[in-house]
Amino acid sequence: MHAICCGGIVSSLLWLAGVTHSYAQVTIERDAKPHYKASYSKEGILGKSSTAHPASFSPSKEAENQLKVYQYRQENGVMAFSDHAPGSAQYQVLLYDCYACQPDSSLDWKKIPLFYRDYDELINQAANTHNLDPALIRAVIHAESAFKVFALSRSGAMGLMQLMPETAKELGVKNAFKPEQNIDGGAKYLAQMLRRFDGDIDLACAAYNAGPMNVTHYKGIPPYPETQAYVKRVKILLERYRKPG
């Protein structure tokens, strides 16, 4: 989860030759990050087109292989999403899922490089303000966006801690692509989830990813493979970030 003018944009505007459309269908809960079911076209997601991704868009080889979603505006002004680049239209390439949400990820989460010093002052400040372990904030940022400040998911989740627009608004975040606002807002929301679920980190992280109503409904981590993978990887990252860098 668009027009941001910066060389490090994750959702870079590209002009490429396209193929036929195949639209994604969305199911949304009020306070959750939406889960998607994609409708694929016959040629497959990559088709025959090639795309050059900025380094900031592709934190790893695996990210390049994630399902790509093409966002573009149709002639009638309606925003559309497709698994193929549209013909002769300006579009944005979005990642389909959060960084740590791919159930079949081949990354070794116990060994991938960490971001020990990135946004150190802002993370420590947010941790003090919201009474959180700074290692937890860092682990969630890593799991959500791999520390990409302009990360934008197809669902509209924005920035380092992938705040949904409505959630950002409720948290008082005016610009989710400004690290100081995003980190403070994400930390505030994470603290809310910890209070709501009596300090249980697993449930708080599951709520951060899938929405607190889903956690309450299922009386635990929801049976979504993406959320289960996310919680597991946040815990691995948390344990690693708690160790001196």
Rank of each mutant, 00 (worst) to 15 (best):
H21G: 04
E144I: 13
H130Q: 05
T167D: 10
A229K: 03
K188R: 09
T216I: 11
T227R: 04
D118M: 06
P86W: 04
V231G: 02
V10C: 07
S50T: 08
K243T: 00
G186I: 08
C5V: 15
Q102P: 07
P244I: 05
E239C: 09
L94I: 12
F150Q: 05
Y36N: 08
H35C: 03
H2M: 08
G220W: 09
A126L: 03
S49T: 06
C98D: 11
H217P: 05
P134E: 08
A204D: 06
L94W: 02
S49I: 00
Y72V: 11
L95I: 12
A135Q: 06
S60P: 09
A3N: 14
I112G: 01
F147L: 14
D133L: 13
P34Y: 01
N214G: 01
P223W: 15
K110T: 06
Y70C: 09
R154I: 15
P134R: 13
D83L: 14
G7F: 01
R195E: 10
S39F: 14
R138D: 07
D120F: 09
N65K: 01
I201W: 02
A143T: 05
D31H: 02
A55I: 06
T51F: 15
P86F: 02
D133A: 13
A100E: 08
D104W: 15
T51M: 15
A85H: 07
W109S: 10
E144W: 13
A157M: 09
Q162M: 15
H2N: 08
G199E: 04
Q71W: 03
